[in-house]
Amino acid sequence: MENFLQQLLNGLSLGGIYALIALGYTMVYGVLKLINFAHGDLFTIGAYVGFTLLVSVGITDSVDPMAALIIMGATVMLFVATLGVGLERAAYRPLRHSPRLSAVVSALGASIFFQNAVMLIYGARFHVYPQGLFTKSTLSLFGLYLPLVKVFVLMVSLVVMTLLYFFIQKTLTGAAIRAVAIDHNAARLVGINVDKVVTIVFVVGPALGGLAGLMVGLLYGQITFTMGWLYGLKAFTAAILGGIGNIPGAMLGGIILGIIESMASAYLSIAWKDAVTFVVLILILTIRPTGILGERIAEKV
C-alpha cells in the first residue's frame, strides 16, 4: 500500500510536467490543427535560457531566491514566446492554406533546426543547474517521500493551468481563441482577427513550454539538447489521450500518462513501461476514438 501511494505520488509529479508541455501542443492544435513538433525543442530552449540566467548571468547573486525565480520565469517565458511567434511567422504562416501535412514537415524541420542550434551554442555536453537553489528538504508523510522542489513545481503547474483555463473560458480573448478553433472563416465573419489570435496562441503555448523547461531544469538539474524530443513525444501522447484541442483534456491526459508510467514500472516491467503506456493509449482510443475528454467530431452530412 505504501508502495502504491508512493508510486501514485511519483506519477502525479511526472504527470504535472507532461501536462504543462501538453498544453502548448493542444492550444496550437486547437487553432491550427497542426502538430507543432518543434514544441519539444522550445521546451529545451526554455531549460537552457534558465541555465544561462542562473550560471552566466548569476541571477541568484544579486536578488533573493524567490525574486530570482519570478524574474527567471518571466524572462524564460518572454524569450521562448518571442521564438514561438517568430517560428509561426517564418515556418507555419506561409503554409496555413497548404495541405496540413506540409506544415507538419515544416515543424519537423524547425525541430531539427532548434535542437542543433542549441547544440552549437551550448555544446553537446550535459549542463547542470546549480544545486541548492531551493532547500533540499524532503517532505515525508507516513513513510512517503516528496521533495519540496516537486511540491513547488506541481503547485506552479496547477496555478498556471488554472489561470489558463480561466483565460480561455472567461475572457473575451479566450472566447476568440475558442471561436477560431471551431472555424477560421466563421470567426473572421464575426470580426475576429484570426492572425492575431494565432499569434496569441503562439505566445501562450511556447511560453508554457519554456516554463516547463525551466521547471524540469530546477527539478532534475540535468539538461541536454536532445531532451525535448522525448518529452515532446510524451506530451503529445498526453494531449491525444485527453482529447487534442481540449485544454482540461491535456491536463488530465498528462496526469494519467504520468500515473500509467509509474504504475507500469511498479507492477509490470520497467523495460516494457513505454510499450505498456502505448497499449493502454490504444485501448483507450479504441473505446473513445477522440480521447478521454475529446468531443465527437461532427460528421459532414
Binding site: 506561409p94 519537423l108 531539427i112 533546426f113 535542437q115 542543433n116 552549437l120
Partner: peptide
C-alpha cells in the same frame, strides 16, 4: 561537420515553404 543537421533542418522548412504541395 557538426552544423550539418542545422542546415538540413532549415532546408526542410524552406523547401516546404517554397513548394507547399511538395
Amino acid at each position: 561537420s557538426s552544423a550539418r543537421m542545422l542546415v538540413f533542418g532549415l532546408a526542410m522548412v524552406i523547401m516546404m515553404i517554397l513548394r507547399p504541395r511538395g
